[in-house]
Simulated assay, not measured.
Amino acid sequence: MAIELDPQLLDILACPSDDHAPLRAGAPGDPDAEVLTCTSCGRRFPVVDGIPVLLLDEALPADGTAADDASGEAGSRGDG
């Protein structure tokens, strides 16, 4: 299910990191994801009950699209 936010709200929302880049609905490779993705750093911010959670501590890491995601933790699940 795609995020349904007011287009005017989406126009003014920005990533809370220092670069303050615009956000877009969905994630790379999954436009229906319940997240807003930063167009600069690639962080994904969850949308809970229609409310964007724009806290850096709650952000999901970039999907390997950002250069700073070289730690190798993206594939680690901790199963087992």
Rank of each mutant, 00 (worst) to 15 (best):
D49V: 02
D63K: 12
D79Y: 07
L55W: 02
P46R: 03
P31Q: 10
G42P: 01
V35L: 00
S71W: 11
T65W: 07
G29Q: 08
D32W: 01
I12Y: 12
A66V: 00
P31H: 05
D32K: 06
P61E: 03
L60R: 02
H20R: 15
G42A: 06
E34W: 00
A59T: 02
P52W: 10
G50R: 03
M1E: 14
A21M: 04
A62F: 03
T37S: 14
S76L: 14
P16M: 11
G75S: 11
D79W: 10
R77C: 08
P46C: 05
D69A: 12
H20P: 01
P31D: 14
I51G: 00
A66F: 05
P28Y: 05
L9T: 14
D32H: 09
V35S: 01
L36T: 00
A66S: 15
P7M: 10
P7C: 11
D6C: 07
T39G: 08
G64Q: 07
R44P: 00
C41L: 05
A62R: 03
L23M: 11
P28L: 09
A66K: 02
G50C: 06
L9V: 14
D32L: 04
A21C: 11
P22M: 09
G50S: 06
L13Q: 11
E34T: 11
D63M: 10
F45G: 00
A27G: 09
D30W: 06
D57F: 00
D30Y: 08
V47K: 03
I12P: 05
L5C: 03
D11G: 13
R44A: 10
P7V: 08
A70C: 10
G80H: 13
E34A: 15
P46N: 08
A27V: 02
V53A: 08
D19T: 15
